[in-house]
Design a protein around this nucleic acid. Structure first.
Lengths: 212, 212
DNA sequence: TAGATTGTTAATCGATTAACAATC
DNA sequence: TAGATTGTTAATCGATTAACAATC
């Protein structure tokens, strides 16, 4: 038996990591150096058990009797999340939302690097967003062959998502940050998809307003 | 015993409802009239059991031997989610993202109605977004007293969220759609919060790129 | 060393899936 | 009626919490 097989970490855990990353950042800003799982739990309104379990999926970052060194802990979580990377990213769909994401999202902070912005609308071509000239979709293939982006941000209407994904996958893109109201992972296998369905999000809020 | 107490529905179920709402809409567009839980399950890549369990939290919308009438089902889910309502909504923070949400989000489709846009930056005051003149925060109190909004969309930097929430709560706002990197629900109780943390979202994607 | 706090195993809880009787 | 499919109960699975021995 050549080394134990690392059991894959559940999505529930992964989705909590960014929150740990944010909180440790804030605590460091406040000048705090070390923290126990109990104290961190209190501040984040979760259980200490959960924090210890979550972190131990990735190794022992703490020290018995002491707790966790915040700078060290944050760095480790950052590495796990990949924010120390620089994944090349293209953004497709420079409408309201797409342009806002391109201009306002600090990609570097999250391990990504925006390298191009595309839109199907010829009227937009050549205009600048976030320092990038908006390019037509006909330029996408060559651009991808040259730059080999890792990730695509999809900010197009849902009708365009399917076809775009086909093309991007054929150009070697494996990861999709999808803002379109379309369930990419149903039709496209062997890719990574993270959906941001703003409509779904606001509906859970209206649900709660109503049922309260 | 005056009627059985309806056990509250779990968040896992609620968060699946918008997806049912989307899929039933698409199926209706395709001209399909009825569907069985088994067939719907296949299309959504979930189990039929889950669909039946989820829907039965709210009552029996189906018919044995027949399945579910799509138009009826969608209407029921819509009512549960509150998309037939018209919750008055103010948006605070007309930066890149805030302006894009104001202009691009079809609030009416989701049971909301945008009634005002606010920003702290005096240079923006008077400019128009989505047909609304951007107002200063000093106008917020009077506006809320007059209009009594139900919901606030927070698109400000995290440093402003806490104070803004204090003010809005004092004006009677109970529900917050929060785009700021700040955990509102930790500091403010008895309000409804739905967070959209785009940073958290993109980090789960970089995690997956890295660990794949 | 004694006290604190982790890493980790065991117990509990909740959510998902399976099964099937009810019924259209 | 017979076949299909729901509504609902029971079984399983996974995630969260509690407990505690290991150890800094």
């Amino acid at each position: 038996m050549p080394g134990k097989l690392k059991k894959s970490v559940s999505m529930s855990v992964i989705r909590r990591l960014p929150r740990y990353y944010r909180f440790t950042g804030e605590l460091i800003e406040q000048g705090i150096v070390r923290i126990s799982s109990g104290e961190l739990a209190k501040r984040m309104a979760v259980t200490a058990s959960q924090i210890r379990q979550d972190l131990n999926c990735f190794g022992g970052f703490g020290q018995q009797g002491y707790g966790y060194n915040l700078v060290e802990l944050r760095e480790e979580i950052g590495k796990i999340l990949g924010v120390d990377q620089s994944y090349k990213t293209v953004l497709i769909g420079a409408g309201n939302l797409g342009a806002a994401i391109a201009a306002g999202m600090n990609f570097k902070k999250y391990g990504c690097e925006l390298i191009g912005v595309f839109d199907s609308d010829p009227n937009k071509h050549g205009k600048k967003v976030a320092g990038f000239k908006i390019q037509g979709l006909e330029a996408l293939g060559e651009f991808c062959k040259r730059e080999a982006p890792d990730m695509a941000v999809l900010c197009t209407p849902k009708s365009a998502v399917h076809e775009l994904a086909d093309a991007l996958i054929s150009y070697g893109v494996k990861a999709f940050w999808n803002f379109g109201h379309y369930d990419l992972s149903l039709t496209h296998k062997d890719i990574l998809v993270e959906n941001v369905h703003l409509g779904d999000s606001i509906m859970t809020l209206t649900y709660e307003i109503r049922n309260n």
